[in-house]
Computed example of a mutant assay.
Amino acid sequence: MAFIDYYKVLGLEKTASADDIKKAYRKLARKHHPDMNPNDKEANLKFQQINEANEVLSDPEKRKKYDEYGENWRHAEQFEHAKQQQQQQGYTYGGQTGFEGFGGGGEFSEEHFSDFFESLFGRGGGAGSSRARGKYRGQDYQAELHLGLREAATTHQHTLKVNDRNVRITIPAGIANGQVIKLKGHGAPGGNGGPAGDLYITFIVEDDEHFKRVGDDLYANVDVDLYAALLGGDITFDTLNGKVKLKVKPETQNGTKVRLKGKGFPIYKKEGEAGDLIITYNVKLPTGLSEKEKELIRELASVSSKN
C-alpha cells in the first residue's frame, strides 16, 4: 500500500494545531461525504482517507508515533522494543552502537524504515516472521452523520458505506448533536490475524427553522393576533408529534410562555418519554386598518384614558 501523507490529505502543515485538524476534517468530510457524492468512487476513497488521517492526527499519541515513524507508525512499539534489545546487546550498524546510524542522535530517517523493519523481522510472510511481528489491531475510522432535527426525533435506519461495504444501523430517537457511537469491528482490518478497528460516528443534528432544542426540551414561537390576546381564544400549533390546540387566556401579554409537558424532544433510549415544549406567544398588531376599525380603536383609547 502506498504511503499516505495524512497532513497533505487534510491540507495541513505538520505544525497544525488540534483545532486546525478538527476544522480541516469537518470541512473536507462534508465535501466528500458519500451522501453528498453518490456513485462517486473517487469521493468515497477520499472520504476514507480523510477519516483515516483524522483518526491518527486527532489522537496525540498516534500523531506522535506518526510524526516519528511515518508510514510505520503502527509498529512504533515494536521498533522501540527492538531498539532497546539491540542497545542492550551492543548491536552495531556501520560501526555505531544501537540505532545512531539511522539519522544521528538516535533518530530515524524515514527512507530506512522498510529495510530496518525487514532486518529485524525478516522478509515475506513465513511463520517465524509472523510470530516476530505479532498480531496488531486495525486502526479506527471516524465519520460524521448529519441529521435534521425531525430525523433525530424518530427511530430510523440509515445505511453507511464503509470500505465499499454497506453498513446498516438503527439510530434511536433522541440522538444528541455531537454524540458519538461506536460500531465495533467496522474499522480497518487488523494485521497478521489481529482484530479489526472500530468505526466511530459523530452525529451532527442540524438546526430547525421552527424549533430550538435545549437538552430534551424544545422552544418555539407562536404568533397570536391582538384580538385573541385581548379577548382570549384558541389557536392550533404543529408539534413534532402532531397538532395541538392551545387556549389563549384573555389579556395575554406579549412574551407569555406556555409549557406543554412531554411534547418536546424524545429522550434517548427511553421509549415513550420526552422533554417539554415551551411556547412563547408573540402578540401581532393588526395592519391595514380600515377607517371604521381606527375609529373604534380611538373610542377604546378614549374610554381607557378615562378609567
Rank of each mutant, 00 (worst) to 15 (best):
N282G: 03
K284G: 00
G275S: 02
Q253C: 06
H186P: 01
R150C: 03
H75C: 07
V303G: 08
L145C: 07
L183Y: 11
V258S: 06
Q88L: 12
L199E: 04
Q253A: 15
D19Q: 14
K261N: 08
R165I: 07
G128Q: 13
K23R: 15
R133P: 03
T239N: 06
R131C: 05
K64A: 15
T170P: 01
Q49W: 12
Q142I: 13
R74Y: 14
S305V: 11
Q179W: 07
E293S: 10
Q86L: 15
V9W: 06
I50Y: 04
K184H: 12
F265S: 03
P38M: 08
P172G: 03
D35L: 13
K306D: 10
K247Q: 11
G194V: 02
A229T: 01
F117S: 07
F121P: 00
F211N: 02
M36N: 15
F79P: 00
E291T: 11
M1W: 11
F237S: 00
R168G: 07
G105Q: 10
L10H: 06
A152Q: 04
N37G: 02
T15L: 07
L260H: 03
Q89I: 04
N241A: 13
T287L: 10
Y66G: 01
K184C: 03
D20A: 07
E118L: 09
D164L: 03
T236N: 07
F203R: 01
F3G: 08
E299F: 11
A229H: 02
Y227N: 12
Q49H: 14
A132G: 10
L289V: 01
D140E: 09
Y6D: 02
D217L: 04
T287S: 14
G128S: 12
G106P: 06
G134K: 05
V162P: 00
W73D: 01
Q157Y: 12
L218S: 03
L10C: 05
I297P: 00
G191Y: 14
E251I: 06
G288M: 04
A274N: 06
S130P: 02
V222G: 02
L28D: 09
K31Y: 10
Y219L: 12
T287E: 15
D207M: 09
A18W: 07
Q49C: 06
D238Y: 13
K83D: 08
S129F: 08
F3S: 11
S305W: 09
M36G: 12
A143W: 12
A18S: 15
H146V: 10
T252G: 03
A82P: 00
G94C: 02
E144D: 15
E111Q: 14
H33P: 01
G148R: 13
D140H: 13
L183I: 14
H32I: 01
P34Y: 07
D5P: 03
G255Y: 05
G232I: 00
N221C: 09
H81I: 10
Q84W: 10
F237L: 00
R298D: 09
I235M: 10
V214M: 08
L289F: 05
G124D: 05
L230E: 15
D5H: 05
